[in-house]
Write a protein that binds this DNA or RNA. Sequence first.
DNA 1: TAAATTTCTTTACGCGCGATAAATTATAAT
DNA 2: ATTATAATTTATCGCGCGTAAAGAAATTTA
Lengths: 343, 343
Amino acid sequence: MGQLKIRNMEEFASISGISRPTVSKYFNDPASVRSSTRAKIEAALEKHDYQPNVFAMNQNRRTTKNIGVVVPNLADPFFSEIGRRVELACIEAGYSPILLSSHGRAEMERDNLNSLRSLKPAGVLLAPFGRMSDCEAIRAFDSDFPLVLFDANIKNVGQAFVGTDNFQSVDLMVEYLCRSGEAPCFFEMKSPPNPNANKRREAYIESMERHGHVPMIFQGEGEGWKFEEIGNTEGGRLLAANAFTTRTILCSNDRLAIGMLSAAYGLGLRVGHGVDCDLRIAGHDDHPFSRFTCPPLTTIAQDYEAIANRAVNDLFGMLETKAPATVRTETTFEGRLVMRESA
Amino acid sequence: MGQLKIRNMEEFASISGISRPTVSKYFNDPASVRSSTRAKIEAALEKHDYQPNVFAMNQNRRTTKNIGVVVPNLADPFFSEIGRRVELACIEAGYSPILLSSHGRAEMERDNLNSLRSLKPAGVLLAPFGRMSDCEAIRAFDSDFPLVLFDANIKNVGQAFVGTDNFQSVDLMVEYLCRSGEAPCFFEMKSPPNPNANKRREAYIESMERHGHVPMIFQGEGEGWKFEEIGNTEGGRLLAANAFTTRTILCSNDRLAIGMLSAAYGLGLRVGHGVDCDLRIAGHDDHPFSRFTCPPLTTIAQDYEAIANRAVNDLFGMLETKAPATVRTETTFEGRLVMRESA
DNA sequence: TAAATTTCTTTACGCGCGATAAATTATAAT
DNA sequence: ATTATAATTTATCGCGCGTAAAGAAATTTA
């Protein structure tokens, strides 16, 4: 690397034998300069490892290379997984992702968006809380920055939405459960903090009716994001009271199912699809630990990779075409049935 | 809020009736201006919601308010949990945390540190990979920025280290297991990616010998961070082969234990401390899901909150005193035995 | 080879703020 | 009221880079 410290672009330009404005142009877009000068710059770059001052760049550029990525809760493996992929896709595309978690609190989502404002992001990928969100704040943000929603949709907010088709995925599970045994009860939280819960309930009802069954919905008390605990205590209570009307239970998400599996184990109930089993439990999301529950959890796998990539592509598409206000798109990917032993 | 848009500090200063340098001083440290002028500024602030340009501030300030927080893998609940607390503690103290995950790859740890360089952070909190890390890079970073290590220690790197006392915690578990039954075997990965694994093995050996037992160590093949899978396949293989020399197994961490619990379930082995049980399994870390395994996992709880707070305090302490090179401190917190049903 | 085109250099200015010195004013202490 | 001290104003510079305009140089086209 370099012997002398390079303080600024001026110095680097003179060292590389190119004028500063041209060097500036290079860093903005290497393809915008002649290949011979590009070669000179890159030769100098190898010898002297200089990189432009980020703050000065961002202050003066019309638009930064910052991409905000906001998720409701990084402690939830679903979001840490999808956040990870989004982050990497942004880096790949030459942008600087800024990953922010709202730690399960809607007011922090608002704060995060406000923090992002001052970073003048080129665009933002947001997995909103949904109706818990400060929708006004999000809408305002939408009108100021390119915004793409993922995981949870808000009507007419953002230039695009990318997520999983809950109606398809839940129907897939209901169909499988019905075909392989009893029709499933549905277990969820009474006031769920996560946005897809309502969609899944509706999808369950619709699917059950289509299959000629009466929907059977059971709700657990409890607030916040402690799904496992609620699945354990509330689900366990219902199990112990023999409240479920069939011996097959579809949980609104895997974390509830994990809690309920634990409760079933404690009650000495044998979960699985075998003839010697007492009940079947299924989930939704293919949580990273669902493969290792006892028994392993039958669930719906969301296509993390596809969702992340599509969301990023949708955003970058509008960034590059600079399309001001084209049509808002909604893309949903199908869930995949993952058959394991619990149902 | 404001009617007219405020473009810069100059405008805001004139609106609030205070000179720009004083306003600048205020934003640097509100306590540094007289209370009467502070009141004027804050009055204007309420009416016109202005905030200084972050990029201009960071470009010109000697030191920014940025704090880098680098963890090996946000997908691991341990790090997402401790990262979360560190993040919040930084915000509380008026700094801007920048949370970066190295996604399980040591070379990305290096990249993350390099990215941070250009953000001129006031300080950095790093949970390093340990010997997998590019120690040279970390050392170089250490000499350029205030650095505090947490979770995993590297000799003489960083101004401070904060973590859990593995010797105490493992000893606590070994003692409990010995007193309540057989002495434990130790299960770990042959080449573990996480840095505390070696410490825990050594601690196990030391503790076993102190208790008059011969250490019995079993190692599973496998690379990377798929602990559950390795615990499941490799641990399951050892269980099936009846390879463990006692019926009590202490796993190097909870995620391995979770995998092994799943394997034991599949093998029809009854895990627990009851007289009717086939074996006992214990872990380490009090992973968020350990309460919901089947059976619930007996483990060691690390004091996340204390570690996070202490690490942040250590860093901010040296930031404020501007102590150049005082004594390097190492702080370890004790682990707490969490007795559940698995052992 | 000359003309047309692209790319580069030079020059100059602006971005929004931090920092500082000197002059001024407000507050506290005597 | 007088002095000492602290805080503020005024003025001016610097940070590192983006951007624009005009002319020079290199490249392509005719």
